[in-house]
């Protein structure tokens, strides 16, 4: 089982148990990003996390966006980068840039 598959199975399990779940997927990276495109983070409504989209520096911001997507049902494309004010806030210390797609697991 590869790690993306593992995260999907965990997310599907939460969903089957009746919790709202959002999936975040790294869709593009530039520079030194610790996790390649395709890496997944699953977030449940109760705040459970599985997988990763970075070395840990943007997971908090992604989890917040995931809660929002769970509420609205609208997918989001998040942009994190060194030139991005928001990235400074969450501290993308690696100097990399990445895009993360957030969707609900309906």
């Amino acid at each position: 089982m590869n790690d993306a598959e593992d995260v999907l199975a965990t997310a599907a399990g939460w969903r089957a148990a009746g919790e709202a779940v959002a999936l975040a997927t790294v869709v593009e990276t530039w520079g030194s990003s610790p996790r390649p495109a395709g890496s997944r983070l699953a977030v449940s409504a109760s705040g459970r996390l599985a997988g990763s989209v970075s070395g840990g520096c943007i997971e908090g911001a992604v989890a917040e966006a995931a809660q929002q997507t769970m509420r609205t049902g609208t997918p989001q494309l998040l942009d994190f980068g060194i030139s991005d004010e928001r990235a400074w806030e969450v501290g993308l210390a690696c100097g990399g840039k990445l895009k993360v797609f957030v969707e609900t697991l309906s």
Partner: peptide, 21 residues
């Protein structure tokens, strides 16, 4: 075994491979 990005008719697509282990 590598994800791809492409733009088709002005739309961005993400192509995510799921290979068996």
């Amino acid at each position: 075994d590598r994800a791809q990005n492409l733009t088709l008719d002005g739309e961005a697509w993400f192509v995510h491979p799921h290979n068996p282990p």
